[in-house]
């Protein structure tokens, strides 16, 4: 009955029809996403920024979890593709009235929506919707629990590619709270598929999930060791509640051990770039001098976000349409 997320998001001929996870996607498809995003970056620099790829389509932003920043980039991306867009901050209101997730979505589907951009606190929520609720609506995962945040990961890939020219061969360190990070999981899958030489995950044992190496990453407890020969350093945001949950003693101690300072960054390759999915906790995971320094590419990341989201929305919508047309074609030999 259930399908692996990596298969569920593809059409029979291997095109994207949902975008749920970076796991299981081929290097060719990930590269196509990046190339498409690249082409949209040039349109962003024009006076008229709109392209008509999603004209007449309705995109619904379904945010069960608050996120102004991610939601706005999706909204801008949909607008620039000429789609009609509806923003719904559902959070807990509908479910608090006793409506199930399925009821909410069936109502929206009945309004002839073509695409749902979904953010939800439960791992697997986007997958559940794509498989069991509204299979004919293209689903874009805008973050599900600890599982995946594939558009964020792809904008990180775009950032790396634009600064380093390629992802193949790069040594990348991801530092901080890996346990709770959907971004880290999506980055690991994308980096490895795109040929990164090594992906290192760095943090204390409380913040590294058990068996993280089964995803192909290498676990490090010592930031100084992990930074050696690194081409890319990705710092993750540390949530305040980690201190209350006995995962860390204090922000101060975390910064001493895993905070990125100019001194520590010097251990990486001289041309290493520093990334952060934002919003930054200055003085907790990264020192201001590094965040604002010459090796930081943090601001560029934000501007690439719209292009990447335009790319996956356009690709998934086209794949979804192709797959529905294929389903409507009469089967050969079927007389009726």
């Amino acid at each position: 009955m259930t399908t692996d997320p990596s298969q569920l998001q593809l059409t029979a001929d291997g095109r994207l029809k949902h975008f749920l996870t970076t796991e299981g996607l081929s290097r060719a498809l990930l590269t196509e996403i990046l190339d498409t995003a690249d082409s949209f970056i040039s349109t962003q620099e024009r006076a008229v920024k709109k392209v008509p790829l999603l004209r007449g389509k309705t995109v619904v932003n379904l945010f069960f979890e608050n996120s102004t920043r991610t939601r706005s980039t999706f909204e801008l991306a949909a607008t620039r593709l000429s789609a009609d867009i509806l923003n719904l901050d559902i959070q807990r209101s509908a479910t608090a009235k006793g409506e199930t997730l399925m009821d909410t979505l069936w109502n929206l589907e009945a309004m002839y929506s073509d695409m749902f951009v979904v953010r939800h606190a439960d791992s697997g929520a986007a997958h559940f919707i794509a498989e069991q609720v509204t299979p004919n609506v293209a689903i874009i995962n805008a973050g599900d629990g600890r599982h995946a945040h594939p558009t964020q990961a792809m904008l990180d890939m775009l950032t790396i590619r634009r600064h380093k020219h390629q992802i193949a061969g790069q040594i990348v360190a991801i530092v901080g709270d890996i346990l709770h990070s959907r971004v880290a999981r999506s980055q690991i899958h994308a980096l490895l598929a795109l040929g990164a030489a090594e992906v290192r995950v760095v943090g204390p044992a409380t913040l590294l999930p058990k068996d993280i190496e089964s995803l192909g990453a290498k676990a490090y407890y010592d930031l100084n060791l992990a930074l050696r020969d690194c081409d890319v350093v990705i710092m993750l945001r540390l949530q305040k509640e980690r201190m209350q949950n006995a995962l860390l003693p204090s922000e101060g101690e975390f910064f001493k051990l895993y905070g990125l300072t100019t001194e520590k960054l010097a251990l990486a390759k001289p041309d290493a770039i520093v990334m952060h999915p934002g919003p930054i906790n200055r003085g907790v995971e990264i020192e201001s001098a590094v965040a604002d320094g010459p090796q930081s590419v943090i601001l560029n990341q934000v501007s690439y976000g719209i292009a990447v989201r335009m790319a996956v929305m356009a690709m998934a919508m086209s794949g979804q349409q192709a797959s529905q047309q294929a389903a409507q074609q009469p089967v050969e030999g079927d007389t009726e």
Partner: peptide, 10 residues
Amino acid sequence: EGPTATRLGL
């Protein structure tokens, strides 16, 4: 708690 939970983020 094992590789599947880690992969699925559960």
